[in-house]
Structure formats: C-alpha cells, structure tokens
Simulated scan of single mutants.
Amino acid sequence: MKPSVLAVICGMLLPLAAQAAAAPALTPPPIDAASYVLMDSVTGQILAQDHADERRNPASLTKLMTGLVVDHALDQHKISLDDVVTVGQDAWGAGNPVFKGSSLMFLKPGDRVTVRDLSRGIIIDSGNDACVAMADYVAGSQAAFVQLMNQKAAQLGLKNTHFETVHGLDAPGQFTTAGDLAQISRAIILSEPEEYHMYSEKSLTWNGITQQNRNGLLWDKTLHVDGLKTGHTASAGFNIIASATEGNRRMIAVVMGGKSSKGREEQARKLLTWGLRDFDTVQVFKAGAALGNETVWYGDKSQVQVGVQQDHALSLPKGEVQKLKAQYVLNGKRLEAPLKAGQTIGEVRISDDGKLLETLPLVALQPVNQGGIFSRLVDYIKLKV
C-alpha cells in the first residue's frame, strides 16, 4: 500500500453504534468463576475475559439457542406466536425420567398451549418440557430441531459450540464457551427485538402455576438488567448471562461455573457495573458520511467523496476518547475512473494514543464514470507536465 493521502479525523466522535476491535486494557474486577466474558453489545468488543474459549457444559443456557431458532421460525412466518401446540407424550415431565428434578413448565400430554406461552415457558420457567414441545412443533422431532440449533451456531461462526439436546441437560458431546454464548446473546438482542422482551419478564403464571424467573438480577436496583438466562447442573456449575443497559449502551456478562446461584449473580453484577462505569461507547463513523474529497483522474467528475459503508462504534475506557485519531490512506498513487459507489479504494486506520486499534475499508461514496475523450486528454497532459 502506498499512502498518498492522509486526513486526521477529529471531532467526529458521537455517543454510539456497531462491530468489533480489541478494547484498550483496563483491569477488570476479580471474578470467581471457571470462565467469563464481558462484551459491549453495541460494538461486539470483548472488554474482559478469562478462559473464554474453554468448552463447558452449557446447562440451561442452551435455551438461548433454542429460543433463537424459534425466533427465526417466527421471522420466516413458518409459525406464529398465536399458533396452538398440542403437547406430545415426549414432553411430559412426569413420564420422562430424564426430566426428574429439573426445571419444568409442568405440561401434560394433550395440553394445548400457544407458541407465545411455550416461548415464555422456555425463557422464564426454563421449562425442559416446553423445549421439547416447541422442538416437536417447529421441526417435527427433537433430533431435527437440534440440527437447526447446530446450523444456526455455524451461521454465527461459533467454533466451540455443539448441541445434543434442545434443553441443555448434560449430554455427551454437548459443549459451548463463554465467548460463544456472548455471541448468541448479542444475536438475540440485535435480531429479535420483538421477542427479546420475554427475557425481562419476572414471572409466568400458566395453568394456575406461577414460577419466578431465576435471573435474580432482574430485581437489582443498581442496574437496569433486562435478560437473559441462568443455568445449572452438577457438572456445569452455576451459569448466568445477564445484559444491562444505560442509555444507548448495553453490556453482556457471561459467567460459567459459578459457585452458587447468588454467587453467579454477584460476579455478573461486578462485570456489568465495571463495564458501564469505566467504558464509553462512541460512534466513530456514520455510514455514508464524507470523510474527505479526493481527486479522480480521467472521470466525468474531478472529485469523489470518500467514507465508510457502515456505522462504526468503539468501546473505550473513559478518558481515552480524546486520544482517538483516525486517518485514511488510498491504495494507490491516485484514483482513476471508472469508480463504483461502494468500491474499496483504501483503508481507514483508527488509533488510540498512537496504538493502532483497527482498520476499516475506505470506499467511494458516489460512482464516477469515465470522462469524454477531451477531458481524459486534458488529465493525461496534466499528469505528464
């Protein structure tokens, strides 16, 4: 790459929006768990982690993927929230020894339940029976639904996740990681806003039975927590994924292998508090906003506006925002027509106090067609003089 044009972009930082560089280091609070991740949901950046790629039993955190597959079936209009599902024999907790002592919605064979209530039963009650009933309805069987779960994991680019059950009870070959669970959670938050509100519901009453959401952070008065899920088995330990917002900012904390139900909440609370207190989420660029004008040779226009194609945000320690700089560099010595709108012509480099954080494609914001014979001749002479 031959740098031909540099432009320092100052004063363009706005409060907010979208996808992933490494954050400058701050020391997170000590976390008592086997593994954890704190992610800025807006940018996708990991702000703190420990053993984030260690494969562990997900327990009921599996139900996040169950819910995501159901949500996508809703998006594709294969099912609707008002559909009525007839519960099958395999979803009967009392008739299934695998479910003994586990979380249930307390369905019975022949019960007729809406997709909406089954979804709430999966999320709020953590009902293993509700997972089976929904899997049968969406995919025809648990095995077929598990295939959809693993297909979705592959689509999300998850390298350390594989499901064997629709509900998360321990099974050979079933595993995920704190890092992958953060990605699943972010996908739910960003792509399923109409269903995400269910994760903040504190209780569900169905068929005369009221159960409380096991995510105790929903009652926390120091944070605005609106999801997501808890899980526990003897081998997994105590797991939790919690998301908290502050204005336009959102953090996701994943804690796996905690020591107790209250302990996992405390560890997640520490991560969320630290992230919201010590970091800022700043919008660095707006899609389509001109970062500069560049000369174009042999074109029907002599200049073209350049910029980026997508909104771009970063999560930075508070106080670092003032040190943030950006510059763009063209790929070649000069720009020559024709150019297409959106064509990559260089890169934008974002640095913090001299340290390169990431690069983005620099694109032409408008098309430039080839000029006429006379204008091209004039440009040729100018370049030769």
Rank of each mutant, 00 (worst) to 15 (best):
Y137F: 13
S260G: 14
V37Y: 11
A22S: 15
A21M: 09
S103D: 08
F279S: 07
V282I: 14
L6D: 04
L217K: 05
M105Q: 00
N369M: 13
Q366E: 15
Q267P: 03
L228M: 15
L118R: 07
E347Q: 10
L61T: 12
G173Q: 08
F99C: 13
A73C: 13
G275M: 10
R249L: 08
A182Y: 15
V321W: 04
D278P: 03
A59Q: 09
I240R: 08
P3V: 10
T161V: 13
R214Q: 11
S260N: 09
N57C: 03
K384Y: 11
W274T: 04
G110E: 03
L14W: 15
G93P: 00
E192V: 07
S200K: 08
I252P: 14
I184Y: 07
Q155V: 04
L223E: 10
A143G: 10
G121T: 06
L377N: 08
D278L: 06
R349K: 11
G208F: 02
R55P: 11
V115Y: 07
L64W: 12
Q370C: 04
F374Q: 09
Q366F: 01
P338T: 05
M1V: 03
K355C: 01
I381K: 01
A236S: 14
D379K: 01
A17I: 08
M1R: 05
Y298Q: 05
A130F: 10
G299K: 01
L204N: 03
E246I: 03
K323R: 14
S235L: 13
S41D: 14
A33R: 06
A59C: 07
A22D: 15
R186Q: 13
Q303H: 05
Q366V: 02
I184H: 10
D280H: 11
T43E: 11
N150I: 06
D111H: 04
I31E: 12
F279G: 07
L271W: 08
Y36L: 06
V308H: 06
E164V: 07
L169Q: 12
S191M: 11
I373W: 10
P29E: 09
Q283N: 15
S235R: 13
P367D: 09
D111C: 01
D311R: 06
G292C: 04
G332L: 07
P338G: 08
T273V: 12
G371N: 04
N215L: 15
A178F: 02
F374P: 00
D379V: 00
C131Q: 09
A52T: 04
I122H: 07
V87C: 05
M1H: 05
I184A: 03
I189A: 10
A253P: 13
D278H: 14
A143S: 01
D71W: 08
V282T: 14
A154P: 04
L181Y: 01
